[in-house]
Every structure is written in structure tokens, then in C-alpha cells.
Amino acid sequence: MEYISLFVKSIFVDNMIFAYFLGMCSYLAVSKNVKTANGLGLAVIFVLLCTLPINYLLNKFVLQAGALRWLGESFADVDLSFLSFILFIAVIAAFVQLVEMIVEKYLPSLYASLGIFLPLIAVNCAILGASLFMQQKEFASVGEAEVYALGSGIGWYLAIVALAAIREKLSYSNIPAPLKGTGIAFITVGLMGMAFMIFMGIQL
């Protein structure tokens, strides 16, 4: 039951885009049509699902204050948490590069449709942001971290596909010239964010 409420909460209430503005750069750059948005969204879900548990274990057994106790009592008061940025981003970048190489070698058709987005994901704030929020929220188990990863990934996916669909429609409307393209996209996202705010009061 706890898992379900965490899942729903991370999709709607704590939506990566509308509540925290994470992954905004690629969100705006790659949302011009639904097909590519779909590819990037799926890639984000996949990378989140794989990197968050690794970072969770890293945080629990290496970085937290006292996490190194399993090495012996003399390590009990070592606090490496100031290293978390560098380790998290190294895990994410290494993982993304690894996935890129594997996909390129064994699944060329998937690489053709997804390939360009994979390197982009290493610098997608939503991935690093999820790891940092995971550290802040202090989840009890790997399972919870995994559910959080799935939920926030799906939330991001929904947001990018919705914006792409709206922008496809918008290209036929008559918009003042200076506002075309980026400007109107910002305002659209703002309005979508307001719509998403109805979920904010929900207690789960």
C-alpha cells in the first residue's frame, strides 16, 4: 500500500517537471514532435530505473555518516557525504556510456531510434535530481527507491509527451512572431504546471 501511494505521489504530486523543473533543457529542446518525445521519455525511465538503486546502495553503504561501519568499528564515524555529487554523477555518466555501447553493438535498430538521446541523458537534471532527492528522503529500502524511480520517470514521460502533442497542434496557430517557438512553449508549460497543481493538496 505504501508503495502504491509513493508511486502515485511521485507521478502527479511531486512531478519532476511541474513541481521541481528538473530536466527542463531536454524537455523543451526535444518536445517538438511526439515520436522523438516518446523515445527520450522511455530512455529517461530506463536510465532512472537502473541508476537509482545503484546510487541508493552507494549512499547507504559508502557515503552516509557511519555507512562504512561494515568495514570495521574504526570506520564508524567516517562521513563521506560531501562526495555524493561526484559519485552519483560518475555512476550516471558511466552507466549511460555503457548502455550506449551495448545498445550500439547488439541492438542497432533501437540505437538508431534512441541513440542520439542517450548521451543527452547523462546531463539530464531529472536523473541526478532523483538521486539527490532519494538521498534527502531517506528511503527505507531499495524497493522504495525503485518505485520512486519508476514513478518519477513515468511522470517525466507523461509531461514530455503531453507537451509534444500540444506543440504539434500549436504549430498551426497564429502566434505573434516574437513569441513563436520557445516563448510560447514556456507559457504553455506554465499553464500545464498550473493544471498539475490541483494534485498538490492531495494527501496519500
Binding site: F18, L179, G183, F186, I187, V189, G190, L191, G193
Partner: peptide
């Protein structure tokens, strides 16, 4: 509220 920042930036 967060969404207004987007609208402001759009402007």
C-alpha cells in the same frame, strides 16, 4: 508559485 516563473520567462 512555480508555474508563474515559466510564464515570466516566456514574457
Amino acid at each position: 508559485l512555480p508555474p508563474f516563473a515559466l510564464i515570466l520567462l516566456g514574457c
